[in-house]
Every structure is written in structure tokens, then in C-alpha cells.
Design a protein around this nucleic acid. Structure first.
Lengths: 235, 235
DNA sequence: CTTTTACAATAGCTTTAATTACCGTTTTAT
DNA sequence: ATAAAACGGTAATTAAAGCTATTGTAAAAG
């Protein structure tokens, strides 16, 4: 389906010429959403595919995951999978959406419960640590977590989804801080929220990928840095 | 060459069975270093391959980079490439080694020049910002930078190299801080250095991947957080 | 100057991933 | 109950990636 003109022998001789396709590639065109499952059996198939893919990610990683592999493991035929997912990026996208939804919900709940309405520095740090450890737990339980997170960074379409969700969360955080009396401008607070949440996610990824590290120590250190940052922003 | 028993029809029916190979894969076995170039022409070939791969990374990304593609673009034949690199991960490893060496050198130079010997909070922040922007510049000029950085996270063997280099740098930072009178334990300082440098690298990756962000603002914010962290460690 | 070693191209083979044409079965709607 | 849609399996095709046996040429060593 994809239009490519790569393998031609002409190109072998002349180096550094034509651009090597930039678009029209599955990786960029996950957009094409296929059919949604409508019957119970189909919903099972759909979930089976996602389950299997998640588990396979932990086994073989992102690069070696393929639609064929998922089919084999799930005991499905290729067309059964292709009915719902046009390629492996579509599967990753669904997994990514679900993981992000869980993470975002944890943050929104935390805000809702007054996560940002704390008096002392210590209270704020403790509250932030609680949030981070909650998000860490959610993520740790998600099959294929570190690979899904990598996909969210590495695959353009997933990046966009992630940026949108991250922007949304940052705005909520900024607004909640304003509601709690923070004096910085909304724009500044949003930028800071984007930065600090990304730093927190990076720290989480460190812990996930290197379980030998002291997760609690890292959470605490990062929380302190974040809380200090907002304190400094005040004046 | 790799031993796999995947495509067999037997496995199609029974899902969730045998592990799907865990080792003996090119991705895990970049170790096998091939021949080093010995003649001038060969050195040129070697560099051409790395150049081409770096440039191609920026065009097609990590997943679509292949030995074949590099050959075509470089005007080389597969055996010419295979003489020096057994697979694409070996190329990435060489690129990763070089980028890390540049980054590490910048940090070591900065330490050498007294980057950690500053009196006031503002001095320390300014010094840290200078370092970060220097590393950012070095990285930005490196072809394929963001993909090489991703490879350093995603490919097991490259991870190891990266961790080793990062540990070494963290120790130097910790020792320099001790020499400058920091009172925390060496272990604690090393752990902090690992955390803060990784956070700084994460921030750099954000800026690289999203040029719309205010790089200087982010650098400054992160530097303040880092410097504050070490100040809090003191007492 | 000749022998050995390093180097690189031709050509081709093997594996695997991606994808679809086709057909039978189940479910839903009329 | 029967037509239409949803489902999912068989089997095969296509294209690309990974890799190498063989062979000729340039360079270095003797």
C-alpha cells in the first residue's frame, strides 16, 4: 500500500540524493481508525489483541513487536487483527491512550482532592510524593509500560496525542494553582507545569527501567525540586 | 542465524505458550566488534557509514534505519558495511559512544574549570546554565541526535554503555562537590548527581524534540531546581 | 617485485513482516 | 426466517531486511 521507491538499483550508485520518503508510512498514518468491535465476541478479540501486545512488549520490546507476532501469540489470524488495527502502531496507540488516560485521571483526581492546597512546604512535598507514587503504581501495573512510554515519545502520532493530554493536564494544574492563590501568570504556570510533570515522568521512567534505584528517594527528591520551583516562582 | 521457532503452525492454536526468544538477537549482541579500519580508504568508508547513518536518522528515524538503507545512501555495498558493523545496532553504538564522549567531555571540562566552585546561589545557577547550554549545543549539532539519544535508552547494550558513562560522571561530580566542601555522604551525592544529570538530559531532550519551547527558560528553571537540591542536601 | 592482507562490489539467498483475496460462520435486523 | 452485516480463518503474495559466497582490486609487507 505505501508508496516507496527505495529498492531501485539506480540509487545504489549515487549517494546522498533523493529524500528517502517522509510520509505515507504506517508510522505516520495510524490515524486511519478501523472498524470498532460491535459484538461481544469482537470486543473479546479486541481486548485479546491489546492484552497480548502488552505482554509481548515486555517480552520482545517495541522493535520486535509485529502484527504477525501478536496474531500468533493470541491464536488469531491476521485478518482478525487487521479488522481492528491497520498496523502495530495502531495497537500501540490504543495502549498509549489507555495508559495516558489512567495517568491523567490520577492527576486530575489529585487536583480535585486538593493536592495543591497545602500550607507548608513539607505538606506540599508529601502531597506531591503521594501523587508521584500513585502514578508510578498505575504505570508499573500496566503491561508493556516502559515500551508504551517509549512509543509515546518515539512515534509521531502518539507524540501528538501525548502532547495534547499533557497540555490539558498542565492547564488544570496551573488553574488550580491560581485558584490556590499563586501569583505567577497563567502562561508561566502552564509552562512550569509542563516542565515539572515531564521531569516527574522522566524520573518515573528511570525507576521503571532501573528497579535497583531507590524509588522513594527519587520521588522525594523530585517532589522537593518541583515544590521549590513553584515557591521560587512566587517571589 | 538466530534460533527461532516462531512461525510454526503448531503455535497458532495455543496462545500464551513458549517464551518468544529472549536473547541471541542482534539487538543484544552488538558486542561482537568487527574489524577496525586499517587503511585510509577504509577509514573513509567507516566515517562515511557513520555520517550517512546520522543523516538518515534525521530523515527516517530509528525504526526505518537499516543496513541496506545506509548502504544505498552511502553508495556502498552491503559487504563493505558488514566488514565494520555486524548490524544497525553496531552503527548506533558507535554514534552513541561518540555523542556520549562529547557530552561527558563537556561536563568534565566544566568541573575542571571550577564549575562547582561558586559562592552564591546565583553564581551556581549561572554556571549550571552555562554547562547545560553547552551540552545542548553539542548535542544539537550531532547528526541524528534525538534518535541516538533514544537508542541509548532503548537498546540494552547501549543502555549499559550509557549507564557506565553516567555513573563515571556522577562520581566525578560528587567528588568535586566534596572537594568544594559539600557535607553530604559520597553515596548520597552520587545518587543525586545521577538523578540531576538525568533530569537535565531529559529537559534537553524536550527542547530538542520540541523546538517551540523556550530553551533558555527551561535550562534556567532546571538549573535552579538542581542547585536548590544540592543546597537542601547540605542542611 | 611478488605475496599476502585489506578492501569492496556483484549477485543472490533466507527470513520475516505486512497485507489481502477469498470464503465460511455467526449475529443482527428486517 | 432470511438478508445483510459482522466476524474470523486459510492461504498466499509482496516487499523489505539481514546476511553471505564469491570474486576482483588496491595496498602493504616481504
Amino acid at each position: 500500500m505505501s508508496i516507496r521507491s527505495l529498492g531501485n538499483a539506480e540509487e545504489m550508485s549515487s549517494a546522498k540524493k533523493a529524500p528517502v520518503r517522509k510520509a505515507a508510512d504506517p508510522m505516520d498514518v495510524v490515524t486511519a481508525t478501523k472498524q470498532q468491535p460491535q459484538q461481544a465476541r469482537a470486543q473479546d478479540t479486541f481486548e485479546l489483541i491489546l492484552d497480548t501486545a502488552g505482554r509481548l512488549l515486555d517480552e520482545v520490546g517495541l522493535e520486535r513487536l509485529s502484527t504477525n507476532l501478536v496474531c500468533r501469540r493470541a491464536g488469531l489470524s491476521p485478518p482478525a487483527l487487521y479488522r481492528y488495527f491497520p498496523n502495530k502502531y495502531a495497537i500501540l496507540r490504543e495502549l498509549g491512550d489507555r495508559l495516558m488516560a489512567l495517568q491523567d485521571q490520577a492527576v486530575l483526581d489529585w487536583i480535585e482532592e486538593g493536592g495543591l492546597a497545602n500550607k507548608t512546604f513539607e505538606d506540599e512535598v508529601a502531597s506531591n510524593v503521594r501523587l508521584q507514587e500513585r502514578v508510578n503504581d498505575i504505570t508499573r501495573q500496566f503491561p508493556g509500560n516502559i515500551y508504551v512510554l517509549r512509543a509515546l515519545r518515539a512515534i509521531p502520532i502518539l507524540r501528538e496525542v501525548r502532547m495534547a493530554s499533557s497540555e490539558m493536564v498542565a492547564e488544570k494544574i496551573a488553574d488550580s494553582m491560581i485558584a490556590n492563590g499563586h501569583k505567577a501568570s497563567r502562561e508561566r504556570l502552564i509552562a512550569s507545569a509542563r516542565l515539572t510533570t515531564e521531569l516527574a515522568y522522566s524520573a518515573m521512567e528511570m525507576v521503571l527501567e532501573e528497579p535497583s534505584r531507590d524509588a522513594h528517594q527519587i520521588c522525594t527528591d523530585v517532589s522537593k525540586m518541583i515544590v521549590t520551583h513553584y515557591a521560587q516562582l512566587k517571589g
